[in-house]
């Protein structure tokens, strides 16, 4: 007879636990880090950093990361992670660019790119959910293969010369704000709504909490995990298309770097909730930290090498905080 583990029972915290300064610091540490970064850079370069123009710059610079990180959030909610979100974005963007250069209409090329991204997600979903491969191995494999496909689609060169109207998606400025900010807001709100208020969203959280308990509760765990990867592929493709429009060019590696940053943002965001679960709000705080740090260090004139070191240190701090929190539960 199969034995099942009972869900972990969390003892209710005493009021003193909840209200102590340490607990507050523990809980709000990541958000506090963002505030501290803003104050720090604001003090170092008050005119430049805190200006409306720079806030707009930061929002524009983090918009695509916010989209790709929200894709990663969905997968991490179910307790997996997707190493291929960056290359999926690259491939989708390159596909759209190649098709437009070949004369396809903009809407058709975008739809095709979204289909490509979704298909990558479908493959990941099948490998992880139905073939029981670990998410690390499966998405590492797709990262490699999809990365190769991006080289094939671009022929290793830089694609450019898409219709000018396509560039509006990434470079348009309604109300004086870059259009990618609006796309990021829409995507993040939709992902948040799905996670928070839909059945599938709750099932994803249930699977992420305990797949076995979710299964015994009647959740189709495989389908839930499959859908999470599929959605991640689709959302990553949106990010890739916007990036290509923003740069007015597509290369074979243009969005690859976003994968690590997205993972970092989600990890940072996981520390925001007491449960330590991935969540869109927290991810946006993580994205904000990465964006503010990059922009602030650029403005202060710190070299890109040190920026990379700082990003790594922040990831270590976030993961450590996250691990300590889950241990304390």
């Amino acid at each position: 007879m199969a034995q099942t583990e009972a869900p972990p029972v969390v003892a209710p915290a005493t009021p003193s636990d909840r209200t102590s300064f340490t607990a507050l610091l523990w809980q709000g540490g990541t958000l506090l880090a963002l505030v501290v970064l803003v104050i720090l850079f604001g003090a170092l370069q008050p005119d430049a950093f805190l200006s409306f123009g720079n806030v707009r710059n930061i929002l524009a610079q983090i918009a695509i990361l916010a989209i790709i990180a929200s894709a990663q959030t969905v997968v991490m909610v179910v307790g997996d992670f997707d190493l291929s979100v960056g290359v999926t974005a690259t491939l989708a963007g390159a596909t759209a660019a190649a098709l437009m250069i070949d004369g396809w209409s903009i809407p058709l090329a975008i739809v095709a790119a979204l289909v490509v991204g979704t298909l990558v997600g479908v493959v990941n979903g099948i490998l992880v959910a139905y073939m029981n491969l670990s998410a690390f191995v499966a998405t590492l494999a797709t990262l490699t293969s999809v990365g190769g496909l991006a080289f094939i689609v671009t022929d290793g060169t830089t694609l450019f010369g898409m219709p000018e109207s396509f560039e509006v998606i990434g470079q348009g400025r309604p109300l004086g704000l870059p259009l990618p900010i609006f796309f990021a807001v829409i995507v993040c709100v939709v992902v948040w709504l799905v996670l928070k208020f839909t059945t599938i969203g709750r099932r994803w959280y249930a699977v992420g909490g305990s797949a076995e308990v979710a299964r015994l509760s009647g959740v189709n765990v495989r389908l839930a995990r499959f859908l999470a990867f599929t959605v991640a592929g689709f959302v990553s493709a949106i990010g890739g298309i916007i990036l290509v429009s923003r740069l007015a060019s597509a290369s074979a590696t243009s969005a690859n770097n976003y994968m690590l940053l997205a993972v970092a943002a989600v990890f940072l965001g996981m520390t925001v909730l007491r449960s330590g679960a991935a969540n869109v709000g927290g991810t946006l705080v993580g994205v904000g930290i990465i964006g503010v740090m990059s922009n602030g260090l650029n403005i202060v004139g710190v070299s890109a090498y040190f920026q990379q070191v700082f990003t790594g240190l922040i990831i270590i701090a976030a993961v450590t905080l996250s691990a300590l929190k889950s241990r304390s539960h």
């Binding site: 610079q61 243009s254 690859n256």
Partner: peptide, 13 residues
């Protein structure tokens, strides 16, 4: 591979 975006940020900032 990502130099276009990196340079865009350098100069913007």
């Amino acid at each position: 591979g990502t130099s276009q975006e990196e340079a865009l940020k350098f100069v913007t900032d």
